[in-house]
């Protein structure tokens, strides 16, 4: 593993680390809200991965400066994709939170293991 590789990929790797932190929160935590936080972190990190792909060293934001030649612009396409993805993320978050609120009302808790215990009890009673 050359230093070159390390330098050119360092950015990706940190992003992957963050991604995994989010993913870990998502799958290891029993609290529903914490899960959604984890999902948010996970997705935000994926956004960073995309934006990293679009970055051109020495580039500028892709807002054209008409008349100026030879300007190096960063790639606009990942930005567009991520704009969409951010919106999708907030949409998911809001539905997830609304579900969590309803679960709290229906069960009195948002801890997964407590919910499972309640469900197991009612199932056994049926």
């Amino acid at each position: 593993m050359s230093l070159d590789l390390l330098v050119s990929h360092y950015n990706y790797w940190v992003v992957i680390f963050l991604m995994m932190v989010g993913f870990y929160i998502l799958i290891s935590r029993g609290n529903l809200i914490k899960k959604i936080v984890g999902l948010n972190v996970f997705q935000t990190s994926v956004f960073m991965l995309y934006i990293s792909m679009g970055k051109v060293s020495g580039g500028t934001p892709p807002i054209l400066l008409p008349g100026e030649e030879g300007v190096l612009y960063s790639n606009p396409l990942p930005h567009v994709l991520i704009l969409t993805a951010i919106v999708v993320g907030i949409a998911t978050t809001s539905v997830g939170l609304a579900l969590a609120v309803r679960i709290k009302e229906a069960y009195g808790t948002i801890e997964e293991d407590e919910i499972n215990a309640i469900d197991a009890r009612t199932e056994a009673a049926e």
Partner: peptide, 27 residues
């Protein structure tokens, strides 16, 4: 049934993970 809520939530989590994995793959 109130379990509809928990099932929907679980689906939301697993579905979003699935979608995010797909996004990573596409990226």
């Amino acid at each position: 049934h109130r379990r509809a809520l928990t099932s929907a939530f679980r689906y939301l989590i697993m579905g979003s993970v699935g979608a995010t994995f797909i996004v990573i793959g596409i990226g």
